[in-house]
Amino acid sequence: MGLIWHGVDEIPEDFGPTAVTIGNFDGVHRGHQQVLGRLLSTAKENGSRAVAVTFDPHPAQVHRPDTAPHLIMGIEDRLAALSGYGLDAILVLHYTLEFAQQSAEDFVRSIFVDALHASHVVVGHDVRFGRGNAGDLAAMQELGERFGFGVVVVDEFTEQAPRHRAAEALPDAAEGGSAERDGAEGYDAEERRCSSTWVREALESGDVRTAAEILGRPHAMHGTVVHGASRGRALGFPTANLSHDAAGHVPADGIYAGWLIDASGTRWPAAISVGSNPTFAGVARQVEAHVIDRPEEAPEDFDLYGQNIVVEFVERLRGMVAYRGPEALVEQMKLDVDAARHVLATSGQGGAPAR
């Protein structure tokens, strides 16, 4: 794992030369991954160290906190994802209104030149930096000529954007809830640039499959398991409830097939509920995961309370529906578990075996 610096004062004076890239990297999606791949190859070709520069908090949270987008992942998960690509170091810059007042030239000189001794800077065509985002690609190239670093431009990475999807029936459809899921093949598509905005749009509509295609992996949330109202346990479907401060973008309300990854790293197939459960009044919006076919021979060894877990979303099964009492809800939950089991068995992702 590479180094992580929280400020330029932590960078050794003799660190360098470097190949550097810059961005918010929210989601570390496939577009980001293409930039990181080019960064690594550039560093290798020039005998430099690969460094990614990012910001915390996200600039939008500083400039427009009331309308800033929900982040796809928290800072710790973002750093873990970036570290997984074999970077030599990550520089996290604390973003403030004062920091944002630096001119494009001052930013490049202080960070890329003086602190990181950059030999190359790897960016996309839409790079923006400096006060008021005044710096663009042309400015970066001009500054590179002035300060002696090369600018490597990465082409945009595009993905197929679904226009409509063919419905694929799930087993044992239930009355009162949708039993269709988006088909993975056979739909019209157009190319769209991979972006964090597109990921958020997909999550906010519940389309976690498209989000996964853009991210290159399933969307995940990360948090601590807390005690809930225990309604699921009373109904025979105990759930692990994520704390309300869990990191990661909460997708649209509904029932999902996915995975619960416990503190030991074991992946368990799960049916995941997102929402306020309209069958019961006064329930706050929450994310809770029911492990499918959980081990019954040693339930005391399967206590997840207080554990830090990851919940991965593979596919949305249906929207959130109010049922006429607990009995109807239990019948639907049985069908949801069967549907989740079916989806996960054909998803090609590993996990603890469902029995």
Results as ranks from 00 to 15, higher is better:
residue 280 F to G: 12
residue 319 G to E: 00
residue 126 D to H: 04
residue 186 G to K: 00
residue 215 L to M: 15
residue 159 E to N: 13
residue 313 F to N: 02
residue 85 Y to V: 11
residue 311 V to H: 04
residue 97 L to C: 05
residue 293 D to C: 12
residue 261 I to L: 15
residue 179 A to D: 06
residue 116 L to V: 08
residue 52 A to Y: 00
residue 4 I to P: 03
residue 67 T to Y: 05
residue 281 A to K: 03
residue 137 L to C: 08
residue 279 T to S: 00
residue 59 P to C: 11
residue 166 A to E: 11
residue 219 H to V: 13
residue 151 V to I: 07
residue 63 H to G: 06
residue 321 V to N: 12
residue 140 M to E: 00
residue 258 G to V: 06
residue 167 A to M: 14
residue 345 A to E: 14
residue 244 H to F: 09
residue 218 P to W: 03
residue 240 A to M: 12
residue 157 F to W: 06
residue 345 A to Y: 06
residue 42 T to Q: 06
residue 174 A to T: 07
residue 108 V to T: 08
residue 94 H to W: 11
residue 173 A to N: 08
residue 307 Q to D: 05
residue 314 V to M: 04
residue 187 Y to Q: 00
residue 168 E to V: 13
residue 8 V to G: 05
residue 301 D to G: 12
residue 144 G to Q: 06
residue 350 G to P: 07
residue 48 S to P: 01
residue 230 S to V: 13
residue 213 E to H: 09
residue 301 D to S: 15
residue 150 G to F: 05
residue 205 S to L: 07
residue 184 A to L: 08
residue 155 D to R: 14
residue 335 L to I: 08
residue 130 G to I: 07
residue 152 V to C: 10
residue 311 V to C: 10
residue 330 V to Q: 10
residue 268 W to N: 00
residue 19 A to E: 12
residue 28 V to S: 13
residue 147 F to D: 06
residue 161 A to W: 12
residue 254 G to N: 04
residue 209 R to N: 01
residue 199 V to K: 06
residue 293 D to L: 02
residue 289 A to E: 05
residue 288 E to R: 13
residue 327 E to Q: 09
residue 290 H to Y: 12
residue 289 A to V: 07
residue 4 I to F: 09
residue 271 A to P: 07
residue 171 P to Q: 14
residue 176 G to L: 01
residue 177 G to S: 12
residue 47 G to A: 12
residue 133 N to S: 14
residue 292 I to E: 05
residue 178 S to N: 07
residue 272 I to L: 04
residue 118 A to W: 09
residue 175 E to A: 14
residue 14 D to M: 15
residue 260 L to S: 07
residue 283 V to Y: 05
residue 156 E to T: 11
residue 207 D to K: 02
residue 162 P to H: 02
residue 38 R to H: 03
residue 264 S to R: 13
residue 263 A to Y: 12
residue 96 T to F: 09
residue 89 A to S: 12
residue 32 H to K: 12
residue 268 W to K: 03
residue 116 L to Q: 02
residue 252 A to I: 09
residue 42 T to H: 06
residue 245 D to C: 01
residue 98 E to G: 10
residue 176 G to V: 03
residue 106 D to N: 11
residue 63 H to Y: 14
residue 353 P to V: 03
residue 255 I to C: 05
